[in-house]
């Protein structure tokens, strides 16, 4: 039911409500999925186009592993674009804001949305959606239908970012 074509309309969350016709029930929430083959990627709720309040796995993530995933070039590769409080790594990018203190600026739900798919908050952003696998164009062989991170990895990164207090 939550097909890839519909993903476009899910960007801000609020457009979905008339489609579902259950606006009263969902209020400001929209139900979305990172993948048309929804059995593979978990469904999630987008609140006000700014937050995904619930854990994708139903469990809290592990901050220590989140830090590793964020650094790993084949996974988060967050350092490509962000400075982070990770002094042992050289060459931090400056395409996005410094992530030091980001856990004070956003709550867990807001951080989760910005990892799952930052285009909900800023459609023109350069930051990739880390939990989206459909509606992408000309994906290289071997990466089709795959999200950059698994639900567990997203939760681990969120758990790590929450610890980055001012």
């Amino acid at each position: 039911m939550f097909s890839g074509e519909r993903e476009e309309t899910l960007r801000t969350g609020r457009y979905l409500i008339p489609i579902l016709g259950i606006a009263g029930l969902l209020a400001a929430f929209a139900l979305a999925s990172g993948d048309a083959r929804a059995e593979e990627l978990a469904k999630f709720m987008v609140k006000d186009g700014n937050s995904i309040p619930q854990s994708l796995t139903g469990r809290p993530g592990t901050p220590e592993n989140g830090r590793k995933v964020a650094i790993d070039r084949k996974k988060g590769n967050c350092l490509a674009c962000h400075a982070m409080p990770v002094p042992e790594q050289p060459f931090h990018g400056a395409v996005g804001p410094d992530l030091a203190g980001v856990g004070s600026r956003y709550d867990a739900g807001e951080l989760r949305l910005r990892i799952v798919n930052p285009k909900y908050a800023n459609p023109d952003t350069i930051m990739p959606a880390f939990y989206k696998a459909n509606g992408l164009h000309r994906v290289l062989k071997g990466f089709e239908g795959k999200s950059l991170l698994s639900a567990e990895e997203v939760e681990d990164v969120v758990a790590y970012l929450v610890t980055l207090k001012e």
Binding site: L79, A80, F91, H92, G93, V95, I126, P128, H137, L140
Partner: peptide, 28 residues
């Protein structure tokens, strides 16, 4: 201007919006 790939980026995201910024060890 067309986004592409698993990272969903267009040429413009790197070379128009971010020229002059470091992407890891590379200056765009």
């Amino acid at each position: 201007y067309e986004r592409r790939g698993q990272l969903d980026l267009a040429c413009k995201h790197c070379h128009e919006d971010n020229s002059g910024n470091m992407i890891r060890a590379n200056l765009l």
